[in-house]
Amino acid sequence: MKYVAYVDVQLKQSILDPQGEAVRSALVQMGYGGVQKVRIGKRIRVDLEAANEAECRRIMDEICSQILANPTMETYEYEIKEESGK
């Protein structure tokens, strides 16, 4: 089966995000005074083949914990879609 996984990687809440903070401060300067917090993460698309959804999730857990996210400072979650047709 063909699957598409969308991975969302975010810094842990306990970690300062200098990039997010710079963007927040720019937004406030632009007049968006209501913006209280900006956090910059990553969204990663992975196309993969796996026997079934369970295997797909097993592979994605490995990929995410080994390389896509650094567990020291990041968390991840992902959603999987089965690719139909071509």
């Binding site: 300062l16 200098p18 710079a22 650094n70 400072m73």
Partner: peptide, 15 residues
């Protein structure tokens, strides 16, 4: 990243 040393590196404060 290899886990041979503890911790991680973040973007510099001030970016």
């Amino acid at each position: 990243e290899a886990g041979l040393l503890p911790g991680a590196m973040q973007r510099n404060v001030g970016t």
